[in-house]
């Protein structure tokens, strides 16, 4: 059983190496239940290299659960998720490999409060990627510069504002040199005054060609950087469109209702 699966996985790895224009993330027939509650229903979604996806929808629609499945913070029961040619299954090696390649930014930052900003950024590169400490620190300072808080490197997360903490969290993920970045409502826990500084960082990242999947209610951000907008409701994908069409000409009634509620007209 196990060997058959390994062979299949190995085959997929080879396929990924040969087919260079294969999608970065392939989700097909994905179903997930929380006990009896059907939280994700038949999700099919391919995301290309360098593509920027914004997932929106009402709360409880399963959008956070979907992106948390991509790095196995949640397990799915049916269907498959293939990230950069590696299939997510119970194999711990696959899970750890995918987690190394996929960065995640959380709603509540989840910085490590007992470590300085710099240590937060170097911990995983040093212990997971086995990069020498000096080199990891140089990389970390480079990314802290990029998110515009190099002067906070020696401070502890508790001493920073929410917006600064979230930018550190983005830098921490980038230090692992990921191929994909997942954003789980990165601005929802922030004071209104701090939202723009985090969005600016995300726009900057999007322009650098990173593959990004963002669960967010920031429609301005979606309009500005998304290649496609995915609208979810009640555990299923309702509509996928380019932002232009999504906002000006939504197709489903559910999308129209949602947009009228959040855009307020």
């Amino acid at each position: 059983m196990a060997t058959a699966e390994q062979e299949r996985a190995a085959g997929e790895n080879n396929a990924a190496n040969t087919a260079s224009n294969r999608p970065m993330i392939e989700i097909s027939g994905l179903n997930k239940w929380y006990v009896d509650f059907h939280v994700l229903k038949d999700i099919n979604l391919n995301i290309g290299k360098g593509e920027r996806i914004v997932i929106c929808g009402p709360s409880g629609s399963g959008k956070s659960t979907l992106i948390r499945c991509i790095n196995r913070l949640e397990t799915h029961q049916e269907g498959s998720i293939i990230v950069d040619g590696t299939e997510l299954n119970d194999d711990v090696k696959h899970i750890e490999e995918i987690r190394r390649e996929v960065g995640m930014v959380f709603q509540h930052f989840n910085l490590f409060p007992h470590l300085t900003v710099l240590e937060n950024c170097t911990l995983a590169p040093v212990w997971v990627r086995k990069i020498p400490k000096r080199e990891a620190e140089d990389t970390a300072r480079k990314f802290l510069e990029r998110v515009r808080i190099p002067e906070q490197a020696e401070k502890y997360p508790g001493q920073l504002s929410g917006g600064q903490q979230q930018r550190v969290a983005i830098a921490r993920s980038l230090c692992m040199n990921p191929n994909v970045m997942l954003f789980d409502e990165p601005t929802s826990a922030l004071d209104p005054e701090m939202i723009s500084e985090v969005l600016d960082t995300m726009v900057d990242l999007a322009e650098s060609g990173m593959t990004m999947i963002c669960v967010t209610h920031e429609m301005g951000f979606a309009r500005q950087v998304a290649d496609r907008v995915v609208f979810m409701d009640a555990g299923q994908v309702v509509e996928i469109q380019e932002p232009e069409g999504f906002f000006s000409n939504p197709q489903s009634d559910r999308t129209k209702l949602f947009l009228s509620q959040i855009l307020g007209n």
Binding site: R72, L73, R100, F106, N110, W127
Partner: peptide, 17 residues
Amino acid sequence: PKGQFEAADALGLSYWK
């Protein structure tokens, strides 16, 4: 908090690390 476990998982740290 659960978020600390998730952040460590998301960075690819093994259980013992």
